Amino acid sequence: MSIDPSSIPNFGGQQPDPKDEGPAGPVVPDQDLVKQLLDQMELKYVVDDEGDLAAPWEDFRTYFMFRGEGDQQVFSVRTFYDRPHPIDDKGKLLESIDDWNRRTLWPKVYSHTHDDGTVRLIGEAQMMVGVGVALEHFVSSTVSWVRASIEFDKWLVDQLGLEKDAESGEDSDGDSGSGSDDS
């Protein structure tokens, strides 16, 4: 199975004409299919120590994971936002991500408080794939989830006034945000 480049959504550009062919039957996506999609999206990726695909950005990492077996297999796109926030800002963060979660379908974002007292955010979208899914649906959902993960980071920077921190090269707690292994 391969991905037709014209099936990758082009948000903001002109959409290609649909093919005259009928829809393809359901496929059970796998890591090779996700790699093809990431290659066609021209996104760099690595395979981590647990065998999951990860696409790194400057301030976050997006993982493409398959969990479960058989009919219960789930495909998850999970983004770990590396920007640390002080525990004192958690209330403001929760208000912001609640607003995001009410307004958008994905990624659903939640917080994680680390042992050192910093708070980081995680976004996630999931799809049941074990019984098969239309290839077009899988591709368009995955692309949309990646783009929404990027948009969330931009939105949060705007909501919390983090542009000043980004422009000055500082995070709110002085950490360079080099990331930690949150997976």
Rank of each mutant, 00 (worst) to 15 (best):
L105D: 10
P26N: 15
S141T: 09
L121G: 08
W106L: 14
D116C: 06
Q14Y: 08
P29T: 02
P29A: 07
P84A: 03
D175W: 00
G123D: 05
D116G: 10
G91S: 13
Q15W: 12
L105Y: 02
T118Q: 05
D116Q: 08
G117E: 13
P107H: 10
V131W: 07
R83G: 03
V143P: 03
F11P: 00
V74M: 15
A166H: 07
D165W: 11
F138T: 00
S2P: 00
D4M: 03
E170Y: 01
R61T: 13
D39L: 03
P23L: 06
D181S: 12
F66V: 11
D153L: 10
G177I: 01
G169E: 01
D158N: 11
A134N: 07
D4W: 02
V46F: 11
D88R: 12
K108E: 11
D20R: 08
K92E: 15
L121P: 08
K154R: 15
H112K: 12
T62V: 15
V146T: 01
A54I: 15
D71E: 14
D49T: 09
S149F: 06
V47Y: 04
P26S: 11
Q15C: 04
D158F: 05
Q73M: 15
D49Y: 05
V133A: 04
I150G: 06
D171C: 04
G161M: 01
E170N: 14
P9F: 02
S180G: 15
S168V: 06
D175V: 00
D175L: 01
T142W: 04
S96L: 12
T104N: 03
E167V: 06
L93C: 11
D52S: 10
D17M: 06
G51N: 09
D173E: 12
A125T: 15
D39A: 06
R103D: 15
R83A: 03
D153R: 07
W145A: 11
S168L: 09
L156P: 14
D52Q: 10
V47G: 09
D48V: 02
E151Q: 09
S180M: 08
L94V: 12
Q72H: 04
D98W: 05
P26Q: 11
G132F: 11
V139L: 02
W106T: 11
